[in-house]
């Protein structure tokens, strides 16, 4: 049986890729951020998950607003990054996992989540930055990734209560997959930030930390917020909390916090790294 062994929250901003490409990890600005990662990398290297389910949002690489999926899932054997507008060097492909992806897609539609199912999809920094953070030097080719993309760019967006139950449905789908696979789920993005308008620059440290606490102990309480509430409290892009909530939704058994590092600011955002161990009750 496939088994979700843990969940991870992490930032995915492009500035991280630039910092890593330029070797800035030990500089005073970046050190408090990067110092959080070794325990999570060690855990991943010890547990050696077969599959990563990765919640992210596409910032305008694969999807434009001509056709904008609310929820999309990749079912391909391989994914590619591409130029996102600033000419960054294209990075190695991401390995996919077609069988479990299709199983999840089938199960989700059956369960009332009408996914856009993608056999080809370019993956942007939202997906690649977290992988490179966990396996630096772009050494993520050995792990199979299932991308799940949530619309965080154009209103109407799925509400927190909806992304949380999407996560729960994915958790059930994984638990019903016959093959023995160890799965870790990444919820990427956030936390509080606003890029646009005269209100740009908002970071709400108190709220971010409260969200991390609640993600461990009482995630359903966070589903009381609407996306507009999140805009007000955590900035226009604070809605990226949806990816963290979706991740937490997949953890339908027992959860234990193993590691956390909150740091702000990195670029314009609050960054919340957290590692949750997940165990299902014995049948």
């Amino acid at each position: 049986m496939a088994n979700i062994i843990g969940g991870i929250t992490t930032s995915h901003i492009p500035a991280i890729a630039n910092a890593m490409a330029n070797g800035l990890e030990e500089t005073p600005y970046w050190k408090p951020f990067f110092d959080g990662y070794p325990p999570v990398r060690d855990w991943l290297n010890e547990k050696k998950p077969d599959v990563i389910i990765l919640f992210y949002n596409d910032h305008g690489l694969e999807f434009f607003i001509d056709k904008k999926p609310t929820f999309a899932i990749g079912v391909a054997d391989e994914y590619h990054n591409a130029d996102e507008g600033w000419g960054i060097p294209t990075i190695p492909p991401v390995t996919g996992e077609s069988e479990l992806s299709w199983h999840i897609a089938n199960s989700l539609v059956e369960d009332g989540f009408d996914m856009t199912i993608c056999q080809e999809m370019k993956v942007d920094h939202g997906l690649t930055v977290p992988l490179n953070l966990m396996w630096p030097g772009y050494n993520y080719g050995h792990v199979k990734v299932i991308p799940v993309c949530i619309n965080c760019e154009q209103h109407p967006m799925p509400q927190p209560k909806r992304t949380f139950v999407l996560g729960q449905a994915i958790g059930r789908a994984v638990a019903s997959f016959e093959e023995d696979l160890n799965v870790v789920v990444f919820g990427t993005g956030g936390m509080s930030h606003q890029l646009d308008g005269e209100r740009a620059g908002i970071i709400n440290r108190k709220f971010d930390i409260e969200c991390l606490d609640k993600l461990v102990t009482d995630p359903e309480d966070l589903t009381k917020y609407s996306n507009l509430d999140l805009v007000e409290i955590a900035g226009a892009q604070g809605v990226e909390l949806n990816m963290l909530l979706a991740m937490r939704g997949t953890l339908i058994g027992q959860v234990k916090e193993l590691h956390r590092n909150y740091h702000a600011p990195i670029s314009n955002t609050g960054s919340g790294l957290m590692l949750l161990e997940h165990t299902m009750p014995e049948k």
Binding site: G60, E84, G85, E153, N268
Partner: peptide, 23 residues
């Protein structure tokens, strides 16, 4: 949309702090 405008900003070689300052 800020997500697409960010690509114009990239073309202008501006980062998100430059954009924040301008706004």
């Amino acid at each position: 949309s800020i997500y697409y405008l960010a690509k114009y900003a990239g073309l202008l070689k501006l980062n998100m702090q430059d954009i924040g300052a301008l706004q």
